[in-house]
Amino acid sequence: MAVSEYLLVRTLHVLTASLLTGGTALLWLAFRVDDVAVALLTWFEGFFWAGAGLIVFTGLGNLVAFGVPGPGTTRGAALSIKLGVIFALVVGSLVRTFAVARYGRADVQAVNEDDDWLRQLYAATGWGLAAIIVLAGVLARGL
């Protein structure tokens, strides 16, 4: 790959992670303020999973560009923890997505702030993404 391709891959990776983290935080805040339209939640879930796929593929591109760190190194440990957090985030996001789909099938127009568990799922997603971003910084720069 040319240097410009690596730059594009890294840019897409960071931009997508930022958009997913910011979008999740905005939805979490929206739950605290007012009812949230199920159509908006459904749209975000599609965006989230498309973005998650893009992050996985660009993350693999970053590993090709920078090399996979050894398991005995700090970067290797950070990568292992990051992959574990990603797995937990995906499982939690599946639960969240199915919850939103259930609202869509029930013809609910908006989810109100009384549905605290859905707001907590968005908060957990945001915190998970923030943890992944911190671990990405360790991978990129070390401790």
Rank of each mutant, 00 (worst) to 15 (best):
I55D: 06
H13D: 06
L54S: 05
L63H: 03
D114C: 06
R96N: 04
Y122G: 04
Y6L: 08
A88R: 07
L121M: 15
Q120E: 06
Q120N: 06
A37I: 01
M1T: 08
R102Q: 08
L83P: 03
E5Y: 09
R102C: 03
L94S: 04
V14F: 09
L7M: 12
S80I: 09
L29M: 14
L89I: 00
R32P: 07
R10D: 13
L89F: 02
L19F: 11
D34F: 07
E5F: 11
E113P: 06
G51Y: 07
V95L: 12
A39R: 15
V9A: 08
W127P: 00
A37K: 13
T16Y: 01
L83T: 14
T73N: 13
M1G: 14
F87I: 15
V64A: 15
F66S: 10
G53W: 06
V90R: 01
D34S: 15
F48N: 14
F87W: 10
R141E: 06
A39N: 12
L63I: 11
L63V: 12
L121Q: 15
I133R: 05
P69Q: 10
L139N: 01
V111S: 06
V138R: 10
G53E: 05
L79I: 05
A124P: 00
W117C: 00
L83D: 05
V90N: 00
A140Q: 05
V111P: 06
F47V: 13
A65M: 11
V138G: 07
L118W: 05
L7K: 12
F47K: 01
V38H: 14
V108F: 11
L60F: 13
L135H: 08
V108C: 10
T125R: 05
V91K: 00
A140D: 03
G92E: 01
Q120H: 04
D115H: 11
G92A: 05
V108G: 09
R10V: 14
L54N: 02
